[in-house]
Write a protein that binds this DNA or RNA. Structure first.
Length: 493
RNA sequence: GGUUCCGUGGCCGAGUGGCUAGGCACUGGUCUGCAAAACCAGCUACAGCGGUUCGAGUCCGCUCGGAACCUCCA
């Protein structure tokens, strides 16, 4: 039996070629994927979380297909400057100064926060999660290799990548983002404090630390710290090789970050690094990109607990994930309370149908073409990871499940396969989770509710509508909703 | 100003030239003591103008509107 990836070969949108490409891994059956992780200088916001959720979904699908995936996602804990001018301060160091903490305390605090959030969103941990500070040696080695290539120069203890020289020698800095060098330089003329650079487009590989800079390491050029773009080149090469499969990240990193990565990789070993470059799109709030600096953000924590003025209530992390999965990873998605409310209902409908499926009984014949449905589901996923299309097919299945009692029948083996694949699509690939039944973790409450529901059922039997409605209304006022179904009453908080 | 991209029915959101995306809302129905919930059914749009084509939401051009990047952000 062929692995699933042979049955359903993946085509993915490659930002570099600007086309949909058939995924053909460097090594048959294995996929190396590198995703640019967060800079841990503050709480991750929901926009950050979307990118990592998108790649988690991609990781999950590739794994499901039978690929052995090595998924590397870094933590940037040094070198990310506030801006590119000479006096630019390292984000981590700045935060440490402001909060009067060790930089590593900042790093630790926000790394933990990041992990917590991603765990709540049910994102699987990557295979390797390397840090910039843990790879200073590798970065220094890479700088030496780039200097040797002739495309970097030292200036006052700092080292810069020489973009002009690189492009003059046939390099293609700008090809990923479609930028032309003369335009770039015209556009950035306004910046000052760039004395050390030969050209405005040049970017730092190593920065000499100023006296006040806390994070510093010795190097052949100065006591300093690595440039932000370098860590991803160094770590992707170290763990995935010079020629690996997928490089991912947020759309905002396309330029300059990924452009610089490609140039560094070429300068080091003549290869671009990844064969396919993928970009997850932005999550906007009020039609604008989420941004910490402008305050146009919402934290996942606030979304989960409802503690934000734009929200009427908190939302289950799985609902949030479902909301994200209903849009394609490469499209801008606009966040709103209404959109979340709609997603919550859809999510609930999906999970209810899943529960129904578990207790469905089989028939002698199938009157629904399960295979054709499976085919559609896989085709949508293998077509550039189209989660919204998959979800539309899931809703078709939901209709089937709901109609199963009188119109649609499935054989025992079909039913078994159906259940198995629903689990795969809903939980393993989309990464959704069942809603907790009310706060059913609380056994005492569950028992108390059973009692109340029984009493109300008695009242209803006796046609004591008054009592029954008082119970229902009072509970509703307390935030507990009763649902009368054909097989009794359940509750929801 | 440059680069990249988007503009789809009340809202969100897929659509790689020809066949109903889907969800939410809404309307009608089933169920129910009533309501809610649940389920079923209905609802048919592609910013504007022009062009290519037998045929365009889908390709080309222009206009209008919006976004991201070009300085830190996934």
């Amino acid at each position: 039996m062929d692995p699933l990836y042979k049955q359903y070969p993946v085509h993915l949108e490659d930002s570099l070629r600007r086309s949909k490409e058939l995924l053909t891994p460097v090594s048959e059956g294995r996929v190396g994927m590198y995703v640019c992780g967060p800079t841990v200088y503050s709480n991750v916001h929901l926009g950050n979380a979307r990118t990592f959720t998108s790649f988690d979904f991609i990781f999950r699908y590739l794994s499901h297909l039978g690929y052995k995936v090595r998924y590397v996602r870094n933590i940037t804990d040094a070198g990310h400057l506030e801006n590119d001018a000479d006096e630019g301060e390292d984000k981590i160091a700045k935060r440490a100064r402001l909060e009067e903490l060790e930089p590593m305390e900042i790093v630790q605090r926000y790394t933990v926060d990041f992990h917590n959030v991603m765990h709540q969103l049910n994102a699987l941990p990557p295979s390797i999660e390397p840090t910039a500070t843990g790879h200073i040696v590798e970065q220094i080695e890479m700088i030496q290799a780039i200097i040797k290539s002739g495309w970097a120069y030292e200036s006052n203890g700092s080292v810069y990548f020489d973009v002009d020289a690189y492009n003059h020698d046939g390099g293609s800095y700008g090809e990923l983002s479609g930028r032309k060098m003369d335009e770039l330089q015209a556009g950035s003329r306004a910046l000052d404090g760039q004395d050390e650079k030969r050209n405005l487009a040049d970017f730092a590989l190593w920065k000499k630390a100023s006296a006040s800079h806390i994070m510093r390491w010795p190097s052949p050029w100065s006591i300093g710290f690595p440039g932000w773009h370098l860590e991803c080149s160094a770590m992707s090469t170290k763990y995935l090789g010079e020629d690996f499969d997928i490089h991912g990240g947020g759309m905002d990193l396309k330029f300059p970050h990924h452009e610089c990565e490609i140039a560094q990789n070429i300068a080091t070993n003549g290869k671009k690094g990844a064969r396919y470059w993928m970009h997850a799109n932005m999550l906007t709030l009020n039609g604008k990109r989420m941004s910490k600096s402008t305050g146009n953000t919402i934290l996942p924590k606030e979304l989960f607990n409802g503690n934000n003025p734009i929200l009427v209530k908190g939302f289950n992390p799985s609902v949030v994930r479902f909301f994200m999965m209903q849009a394609h990873y490469s499209s801008v998605l606009d966040f709103s309370n209404d959109a979340l409310l709609a997603a919550e209902k859809g999510h609930h409908k999906l999970m209810s149908a899943w529960s129904k499926l578990q207790v469905l009984s089989s028939s002698k014949e199938s009157t629904w073409n399960l295979q054709a449905w499976l085919e559609k589901c896989y085709r949508s996923l293998s077509d550039n990871f189209n989660s919204p299309i998959l979800i539309s097919h899931l809703f078709e299945a939901i209709k089937v499940i709901n109609q199963s009692e009188n119109q649609i029948a499935l054989t025992a083996s079909d039913l078994e396969l159906f259940k198995q694949k629903m689990d795969a699509f809903v939980f393993d690939i989309l990464g959704l989770q069942l809603e907790e039944q009310g706060t059913a973790q609380n056994e005492a409450l569950d028992k108390a509710m059973d009692l109340v529901i029984t009493l109300r059922a008695k009242a209803r039997e006796n046609k004591d509508w008054n009592t029954a409605d008082i119970i229902r209304d009072q509970l509703a006022a307390a935030g507990i909703k009763l649902k009368d179904g054909a097989h009794g009453t359940s509750y929801e908080i």
